[in-house]
Design a protein around this nucleic acid. Structure first.
Length: 460
RNA sequence: GUCACCAUCGUCUAUCCGGUUAGGACAGAGGCCUCUCAAGCCUCCAAGACGGGUUCGAAUCCCGUUGGUGACACCA
């Protein structure tokens, strides 16, 4: 049997990392089994759905490297189909019209709650034989007794008594279908075999199974992946930093790092931490998914991102950094960026930080700000060394990293000095920073003229 | 409140069918390297929520307690 999975976001916001993760799992499952991965836009809520969010979600999917099969399905374009199925349900007696007002229904729920029961609609209109009319909704007739049992791919057997289920609304007064109806109809029509989705849908599943049964559809395999929570184990929210995939992109993360991190959160393959997309497709078969919620750890993501940056070929990395430099106001040729990268890949954990680190090479000496920690090296002795070195560097016959390194070490040795007396002041003068690449490399990258200018300025 | 799900180092996790000094990774501490900061390498720190069973033997199976999460809409 061909495996068909789907990802079904509603365009009411950007793609969230939780949604991104389920999308990755769905995509992997389909690719692993050589099946299909479909994308459906759940836009039945006309007021909250926006085209810009659909665009943003699609862009994030592409950025993550997730391609989908076939055309996009928009629920808003399938209203006739939903209504046809609702009519069928009405005909077969699985559904009925109801004219209870929201206030009445709310009162029923209050009564149930007061009795210590689950708040639910009391079935008042079940047998009133109502027909279509303004202000009326269609409800599902839930069986009087029985249990809904299903085998979840990640959570195992889940069992719920039908008495817990409500005669839910399938068609609203405005004629629009509700979520549960539309999902079941679409998943069936699209031939979905495996419904992998967030944990928050477990309690919808028994209701949907009821619908599958009432409609005479074959029930697919369900799998509910736990949600991601914040480092404090609370629900992931804005407080925990960036949450949308697009924000990570803007922060300079590599898609492969995010994918690797997200997959590893809730799934494992022994002790392996690093996975290429290709490897994931080979290894991910829907097993080994963890059933408990996982806390999001920005530190580990950062580590993974640094790892992937270091393993990106320099020319490619240079192209990735350039847009970030441009955002900072520096339009720099790729070759120039690439030449500087060896000094900085190991010192930055994201593209934005990497770009920021490179800016010192593009701003004029006068604009260079010397940070407090770096000022310490510019004491009396430091300035003296700079003055001496300035002239030596100005006069050296050949100006390159190797020659500079030799010059510096010979100077230290002959003068009976410690390298610490020349390295830090030079670095402060050249970069304004207390840490960074070797000073001879920095000078070589800066060029003789610019280096001398900066040394002179700091020696004053 | 009701229902469902979950419970191994601070965090992500391994330990597929009960027998391990409970392993790895991130973070943290220390060290090597070194002009600094990183990177890299080495070492260390650190866990089976609690209480009962079953068993020769339980992190692993069962029950209970506690705690956490999710759901209970004419949102999705």
């Amino acid at each position: 049997m061909k495996v068909v999975t789907r990802f079904a976001p509603s365009p009411t916001g950007h793609l969230h990392i939780g949604g991104g993760r389920t999308a990755i799992f769905c995509w992997l499952l389909a690719r692993h089994f050589g099946g299909e991965f479909r994308l459906r836009i759940e836009d039945t809520d006309a007021t909250r759905s926006k085209q810009e969010y659909t665009d943003s979600i699609l862009a994030s999917m592409k950025w993550l490297g997730l391609d989908w099969d076939g055309d996009l399905t928009y629920q808003s374009q399938r209203l006739d189909i939903y209504n046809a199925y609702i009519d069928k349900l009405l005909e077969t007696g699985h559904a009925y019209w109801c004219d209870c007002t929201p206030e009445e229904v709310e009162a029923m729920r209050e009564v149930a709650r007061a009795r210590g029961e689950k708040p639910r609609y009391n079935g008042k209109c079940r047998d009133r034989g109502l027909t279509a009319g303004p202000g009326r909704v269609v409800r599902l007739r839930v069986p009087d007794e029985g249990r809904i049992v299903f085998n979840d791919m990640v959570k195992g057997t889940i069992s719920v008594d039908v008495s817990e289920l409500d005669d839910m609304v399938l068609r609203r007064t405005d004629g629009m279908p509700t979520y549960n109806l539309a999902v079941v109809v679409d998943d069936h029509d699209m031939g979905v075999t495996h419904v992998l989705r967030g944990d928050d849908h477990v309690s919808n599943t028994p209701k949907q199974i009821l619908l599958y049964n009432a409609l005479g559809f074959e029930v697919p395999t369900f799998g509910h992946v736990p949600m991601i929570c914040g480092p404090d184990h609370q629900k992931l929210s804005k407080r925990h930093g960036a949450r949308a995939v697009i924000e990570y992109e803007q922060d300079g993360l590599l898609p492969q790092a995010l994918v690797n991190y997200l997959v590893r959160l809730g799934w494992s393959h022994g002790d392996q931490e690093i996975f290429s997309l290709k490897e994931l497709v080979e290894l991910f078969d829907g097993n080994n998914l963890n059933s408990s919620p996982a806390a999001f750890d920005p530190e580990k993501l950062k580590w993974l991102n640094a790892h992937y940056m270091r393993n990106t070929p320099l020319p490619q990395l240079a192209e990735m950094v350039r847009p970030f430099l441009k955002k900072l106001g520096y339009d720099v040729p790729a070759e120039r960026v690439e030449a500087l990268l060896p000094m900085y890949v190991e010192r930055a954990s994201d593209l934005a930080a990497l770009a920021q680190a490179l800016t010192i090479y593009f701003k004029p000496a006068e604009e260079l700000v010397i940070e407090d920690k770096a000022m310490k090296a510019l004491n009396e002795d430091g300035k003296h060394q700079l003055t001496v070195l300035h002239d030596m560097i100005a006069e050296m016959p050949e100006f390159n990293a190797e020659a500079l390194d030799t010059l510096l070490h010979e100077y230290v040795e002959k003068g009976g000095l410690k390298f610490k007396q020349v390295g830090p002041p030079l670095r402060s003068a050249l970069t304004g920073l207390a840490g960074g690449p070797s000073v001879h490399d920095v000078m070589a990258a800066l060029g003789r003229e610019e280096s001398l200018k900066r040394i002179e300025r700091a020696a004053k």
